[in-house]
Amino acid sequence: MTTPNELRLLPWSGPGGKPCYLSTDDPDGYMSRLADNIEAIQLGTAEKLLKMASETLDDEDADPIQLRRLGNALACALKDVLRVAVSREQLVPVGEPHRI
C-alpha cells in the first residue's frame, strides 16, 4: 500500500519511453486497479512465453525466424516483469517480506 507521498511505478511507459508514476493514497482507486490488472496480464504473458520458449528450444528443427521472434517477445516480457518487480518492491510495507 502506498502512502500519499509515495509514487507507484506504473506498468506502462509514457512518451519517449519515460516511466509513468501514480501518486495516490487509494490502492483501490481506478488507476491502481488498472495498473494491477495490467501487471497481471503482463505476468501471465511472460509465463506463457516461458512455456513456449521451453517447447521451442527443445525442437531441434525450430525455424531461425521463429526463434528470433520468440527472443524478441521474451525480451519485451522480461522488461515488463522487471518493471512489475520494481513497482512491487516500492509497494512492500517496511518490515514485510519481499515477494515478487
Rank of each mutant, 00 (worst) to 15 (best):
residue 69 R to I: 02
residue 7 L to V: 04
residue 5 N to C: 06
residue 4 P to D: 07
residue 80 D to P: 09
residue 21 Y to N: 08
residue 16 G to V: 11
residue 79 K to F: 05
residue 37 N to L: 10
residue 60 E to V: 06
residue 32 S to L: 06
residue 31 M to H: 08
residue 68 R to N: 06
residue 31 M to C: 11
residue 96 E to C: 09
residue 85 A to Y: 09
residue 29 G to T: 12
residue 9 L to C: 11
residue 80 D to Q: 12
residue 8 R to M: 09
residue 72 N to L: 12
residue 14 G to Q: 09
residue 77 A to F: 00
residue 9 L to Q: 12
residue 71 G to H: 05
residue 56 T to M: 14
residue 67 L to D: 02
residue 47 E to G: 03
residue 20 C to M: 14
residue 58 D to A: 13
residue 31 M to V: 06
residue 86 V to Y: 10
residue 90 Q to Y: 11
residue 73 A to I: 02
residue 80 D to R: 00
residue 18 K to V: 07
residue 11 P to Q: 02
residue 54 S to N: 15
residue 91 L to D: 10
residue 41 I to F: 15
residue 89 E to I: 07
residue 95 G to L: 00
residue 39 E to T: 08
residue 95 G to K: 01
residue 39 E to V: 01
residue 8 R to Q: 14
residue 63 D to R: 07
residue 13 S to V: 07
residue 77 A to C: 10
residue 39 E to L: 05
residue 45 T to D: 11
residue 6 E to F: 07
residue 4 P to Q: 05
residue 42 Q to C: 12
residue 64 P to C: 03
residue 11 P to W: 00
residue 50 L to Y: 05
residue 21 Y to G: 08
residue 3 T to C: 02
residue 60 E to A: 15
residue 74 L to V: 04
residue 21 Y to V: 12
residue 80 D to T: 05
residue 41 I to S: 12
residue 74 L to W: 00
residue 37 N to T: 09
residue 43 L to V: 06
residue 94 V to H: 12
residue 59 D to G: 02
residue 91 L to R: 13
residue 13 S to K: 13
residue 47 E to R: 10
residue 35 A to M: 01
residue 21 Y to D: 10
residue 61 D to M: 13
residue 96 E to N: 07
residue 80 D to K: 09
residue 71 G to S: 06
residue 53 A to D: 07
residue 69 R to E: 05
residue 43 L to D: 05
residue 75 A to G: 13
residue 48 K to R: 15
residue 76 C to T: 10
residue 14 G to A: 06
residue 86 V to W: 06
residue 12 W to M: 14
residue 21 Y to I: 05
residue 15 P to I: 05
residue 58 D to H: 07
residue 61 D to R: 15
residue 78 L to V: 02
residue 83 R to G: 01
residue 67 L to S: 01
residue 10 L to V: 09
residue 75 A to H: 12
residue 58 D to K: 06
residue 52 M to H: 13
residue 7 L to P: 00
residue 94 V to G: 04
residue 77 A to I: 01
residue 46 A to Y: 03
residue 66 Q to R: 14
residue 28 D to C: 07
residue 100 I to M: 04
residue 41 I to R: 15
residue 68 R to F: 08
residue 46 A to E: 01
residue 36 D to Q: 01
residue 42 Q to W: 10
residue 30 Y to F: 09
residue 22 L to P: 00
residue 38 I to K: 11
residue 55 E to N: 05
residue 39 E to M: 15
residue 43 L to H: 05
residue 15 P to D: 11
residue 48 K to T: 08
residue 59 D to V: 04
residue 30 Y to L: 12
residue 48 K to L: 14
residue 90 Q to L: 15
residue 36 D to K: 11
residue 89 E to P: 03
residue 47 E to H: 07
residue 26 D to I: 01
residue 29 G to V: 03
residue 90 Q to D: 14
residue 24 T to Y: 01
residue 64 P to M: 07
residue 19 P to N: 02
residue 60 E to I: 11
residue 12 W to N: 10
